[in-house]
Write a protein that binds this DNA or RNA. Structure first.
Length: 561
RNA sequence: CGGGGAGUAGCUCAGCCCGGCUAGAGCGCUUGGUUUGGGACCAAGAAGUCGCAGGUUCGAAUCCUGUCUCCCCGACCA
């Protein structure tokens, strides 16, 4: 493709709407333009990358027996009502105003609808149906460029099986295919076991990429691969101590001491000798939650531990419940249910609030003084703590979800009546699985992992072109002739070539554009080398330049690409 | 939805607090010329309903009210 005739609007300045590297690079390199919040147009260069990604996905999905469909994005609302998901999605689902249609945010319903009555025999199963399609979700807050948009490309596949055992096989095939897809895309990723949430299913795994732009926080062990969302992550951490002797309870005046840090400083004690109190309202009954030292209550763990509705108490409720304000609340004399984090189990000689403003208690023995307490894992894992599986150090960081594989079970097949007859003529619901990949997230994550101060660094699999051919001074007829000839030859050799044949920009502009757009190999045709019958080859990744005799160019490229 | 920031030329932004003639800069763009191995130079030029609506005023980019849009943090996120 000739640069002079292409729409590649590169930008020297950083556009104000972009914050994260991948977004900035996409805009600056002329890959994408925003139309509205969370809605993007892929420009020709960027769309080439999208197609490289989708082609990798197709190959791997076909390799496990997937059949490519194209389901409609516009769906009758009625079908969505049958599974209760119009309500479940709520405002996230786009509704069409002048018809009872919705814009599909995913396609379980439509797959089930087509399967119903069509897959009627055990002989029809298993099936793997997939598509690469535009999805619509009314995200309340689109962000991070294409990473969270209101319209986005998704590869979604659905497996239809007879039994849960067969589902295991289909799930495993997807697990392997996904690894291949992300490996081939050149991404560094890891896998997190996750709870299946509102999709309604049992087992699921998320494929994640470490990134500050991520929306999930995960704990990860580099040694054994343990990875979990911090909402559920566990770690080995040190229990509060139990001394041989328990002191008697004693009251300490602690004027203006509220936080654990202030308490430790005031009494000159260690954080691990203290217990922090938080009061929650659980189905209209107060619950005191005790944490060791300064540990924060992990509300994602607290909810499931208690069941029902849980919310933090309002400050004005605290006094009535405990007799004190926040900062002076503690377990002794607290009249309602008390639960604590596991780390506090059996500890003694602890300091905590006295349920009396400006007073704390010392000498608390959990066994002796708080006999009816219940223990749960309520901590939030922090970086530096030890892995529960192998004991090495955990890292906590933000991550982007690239893909997710679910064992759905029979939720949708039951709701929409997708049944088959087995060998004995007995009817069963089809067992389903659902598997998604965010196509643009592969794109964005690749960029997050492959750039430098000059711009993007493509590797061959996703690069829009293999070679960026640069004719420096195109008004020089020898350069013009030679570079055009090389352009033709390289294409005959089967390379995808972007040819910077512009005659109205200086060399510096071409070099900088080439580095910004980031094709793996640059070939520079300039007077300096051409007068000796040579050209320069530059590898973008290593910033390595080599001078090559013209007749050797082809061999050299075979070696490099 | 809560909190914060922003909307002025294609892009990045100044001007706004403290109202005043024809609204500015850099980059980009057009034309001519000189350049051509790291965003080069000279000259001439085009380009703006100052987000929108209403109000205050002799006079509004500037003050007031409303509204829309975009960005960031949070909530939410099959």
């Amino acid at each position: 493709m000739k640069f002079s005739k292409s729409f590649i609007p590169t930008l020297k300045e950083v556009p104000s709407e972009a914050v994260i590297p991948s977004h900035i690079l996409m805009i600056r390199a002329g890959l994408v333009r925003q139309l509205s919040a969370g809605i993007y147009t892929w420009l020709p260069l960027g769309y080439r990358v999208v197609r490289k990604i989708t082609e990798i996905i197709r190959e791997e999905m076909n390799a496990i027996g997937g059949q490519e469909f194209h389901f409609p994005a516009l769906n009758p609302k009625e079908i969505w009502e049958q599974t209760g998901r119009v309500e479940a999605f709520g405002d996230t689902l786009f509704h069409v105003k002048n018809r009872d249609y919705v814009l599909a945010p995913t396609h379980e319903e439509i797959v089930a609808w087509h399967a119903q009555g069509a897959l009627t025999s055990y002989k029809d199963l298993p099936q793997i149906w997939y598509q690469i399609q535009t999805k619509f979700r009314n995200e309340p807050r689109p962000r991070s460029g294409v990473i969270r948009g209101r319209q986005f490309l998704m590869k979604d596949s659905y497996t239809l099986d007879r039994t849960f055992e067969d589902l295991d096989i289909a799930y495993d095939k997807h697990d392997k295919a996904y690894r291949k897809i992300f490996d081939r895309s050149g991404l560094k990723y890891f896998i997190v076991g996750a709870s299946s949430g509102a999709m309604g299913g049992s087992k699921s795994e998320e494929f994640m990429v470490k990134s500050d732009a991520g929306e999930d926080t995960v704990a990860y062990c580099g040694k054994c691969g343990y990875a979990a969302n911090v909402e559920v992550a566990q770690s080995v951490s040190v229990n509060a101590a139990r001394d041989n002797e328990s002191k008697q309870l004693f009251e300490i005046p602690t004027p203006d001491v509220k936080s654990i840090d202030e308490l430790c400083a005031f009494l000159k004690i260690d954080e691990h000798e203290t217990a922090k109190s938080r009061v929650y309202m659980h189905d209209d009954k107060p619950v005191l939650v005790l944490m060791l030292g300064n540990d924060e209550v992990n509300e994602s763990k607290l909810g499931p531990a208690l069941g029902g509705n849980v919310r933090p108490c309002h400050p004005e409720e605290l006094k009535e419940i405990s007799g004190a304000d926040a900062g002076s609340i503690g377990p002794i004399g607290f009249k309602y249910r008390i639960i604590a984090d596991n780390l506090l189990e059996g500890a003694n000689n602890l300091y905590s609030g006295a349920n009396k403003n400006d007073y704390h208690l010392g000498g608390i023995d959990m066994k002796r003084d708080v006999p009816n307490i219940e223990y749960f894992d309520l901590r939030t894992v922090e970086s530096g703590e030890k892995c529960v599986r192998c004991g090495s150090t955990l890292e906590v960081f933000k991550a982007i979800e690239l893909g997710h594989i679910f064992k759905l079970g029979t939720k949708y097949s039951v709701a929409l009546g997708v049944n088959y007859l087995d060998e004995n003529g007995k009817e069963h619901p089809v067992v389903m699985g659902s598997y998604g990949i965010g196509v643009e997230r592969i794109f964005a994550c690749y960029l997050e992992q492959n750039y430098d101060e000059k711009g993007i660094i493509w590797k061959k699999p996703l690069a829009p072109f293999d070679i960026h051919l640069i004719g420096l001074n195109m008004k020089n007829s020898l350069i013009d002739e030679t570079s055009n000839k090389i352009y033709e030859e390289l294409q005959k050799e089967g390379y995808e070539v972007l040819f910077d044949d512009r005659n109205d920009v200086s060399a510096g502009v071409k070099f900088n554009d080439a580095d910004l757009i980031g094709m793996p190999v640059q070939i520079v045709i300039g007077e300096k080398n051409l007068k000796d019958g040579r050209v320069e080859i530059k590898l973008r990744a290593k910033n390595e330049k080599q001078i090559v005799e013209l007749p050797q160019l082809n061999n050299k490229l075979k070696e490099l690409i």
